[in-house]
Write a protein that binds this DNA or RNA. Structure first.
Length: 118
RNA sequence: GAAGCAGGGCAGAUGAUCGCCGCCGGCGCGAUGAGUGCCGGGGGAGGAAAGUCCGGGCUCCACAGGGCAGGGUGCUGGGUAACUCCCAGUCUCGGUAACGAGGAGGAAAGCGCAACAGAAAGCAGACCGCCUCGCCCGCUUGCGAGCGGGGUAAGGGUGAAACGGCGAGGUAAGAGCUCACCGGUCCCGAUGGUGACAUCGGGAGCCAGGCAAACCCCACCCGGAGCAAGACCAAAUAGGAGAGCGAUUGAGGGCCGCCCGCCCGAGGCUCUCGGGUUGGUCGCUUGAUCCAGCCGGUAACGGCUGGGCUAGAGGAAUGAUCAUCACCCCCGCGGCCCUUGGGCUUCGAGGGGAACAGAACCCGGCUUAUGACCUGCUUCGGAU
RNA sequence: GUCCCCAUCGUCUAGUCCGGUCCAGGACACCGGCCUUUCACGCCGGCGACGCCGGUUCAAAUCCGGCUGGGGACG
């Protein structure tokens, strides 16, 4: 087995239909720099999808945002409460200045509140 | 020391941990396959990867053919696969200089353009002025005022631009009208250079410019699309509806601007609508390649020999954390110079910063963005 | 990734091909005044733009380069 902190291809949302399902039917949350859509899936693990629009940033900054979010998911996915979910994160202007520590602090309340609901 | 000019390479390094994407080897599941998981090894963005502004390779459009249209280039010679690129040179312009910039063919081939101002703006032009003649008036009798005819481009004023400059002669006043010198234009000759051109000598004449980065003429170049090119495999739906046309005397299609020419060509062809798929493999990285040495060349570059090649993704991989060492700035302490203030420098136990920016078929350039450093040169200032 | 197109007052636009008539015209909006008891309508006046940087030219919104910012198409 790989380490539990890995991020493998099947944990990634790729298909356009999956993005549409999460966006239309999922619960929405909003933080200072991101929008999140979340919906439970039928699998045994969480999945992550990223939306970083081309119109706001150049290629280097887009890659930077996606890497930092994936780094968060890789390290903290065990903390996400258990019915497995599809999570789509939409970056908003200002997100390119986030470092991993700030990002973790920003996402913590979102999933902490979820824990309390059930 | 200050300011500036030109050129050069670099794009933080090392280690640890957790991860990502290909490749190779081994093992497991599976059917010996397709896949998939684990372990090990090795690799993984740039000088601009960018803008997509030029030029090629490659692929398809029959074979890439002719003409027109359209587009591009534009001093000379060389380099190159090719170029709007590079190198060397010529001329012009800018700069005190080092050096830099130049789309630098043609306006006595054509159609044209020049607002406003000004008298006049394209085979120039009399508003004021200057000179002269005629008429008339005044008087101090050769001067003044007015009107009219003529001569004149020296002077004034306008303009972006007004047809050489200056001196002498000449004249009623003037004028290249004539002459000397200077400047430019054109023609002829000599010398140097492959050539652009330069230098020198002689002559003509001062009849006359600018805009081609609007059209145009001349010379040369360019067929069109683009890896979402293109080739193959698998799956799935349908085997439809409408319109147009047609059989060798040629419907229609291809060569994606048009014509010629060529080719394919029939119980089918084309267009539109409707329906299905939203997969995989190849192309896909060894190439006009990079490094070193020698040779030819002023150089760009070329030749030979030896060696190296390890990104090839596909909703798109290089990241995070920590430590140490280098670089820069601030701060603190010490030393020196010294006019309160400031400058230079050693040390560190502190704090902060480190640019522009991410391959998408591949190369050669251009342009734009950007960090710290090194070397050479120029001008000015100081010291010797 | 590749290939195209566009940019003028706060908004919609004319002028760009073929340079000067343009310190850029019009409509709506905004501001001030007149009319009206007041508002609206109407009339008069004002404010206000050639995306940016170079070049050619006597002269550039217009011609030629280079940037910047938008928009579109493509199996």
């Amino acid at each position: 087995m790989r380490g539990k902190n890995s991020f493998q291809p099947h944990e990634r949302i790729r298909r356009s239909a999956d993005f549409q399902r999460v966006k239309n039917a999922g619960k929405r949350a909003k933080t200072r720099h991101f929008g999140l859509n979340i919906i439970p899936n039928d699998l045994e693990y969480h999945r992550l999808g990223l939306v970083v629009q081309k119109r706001f940033w150049c290629a280097v900054k887009r890659n930077r945002i996606k890497r930092v979010i994936r780094e968060w998911f890789r390290l903290d996915k065990a903390q996400i409460p258990m019915p497995p979910k599809d999570i789509v994160i939409i970056a908003r202007p200002g997100a390119e200045k986030m470092n991993p520590v700030e990002l973790r602090a920003e996402f913590l309340p979102v999933f902490g509140k979820q824990d309390g609901t059930h």
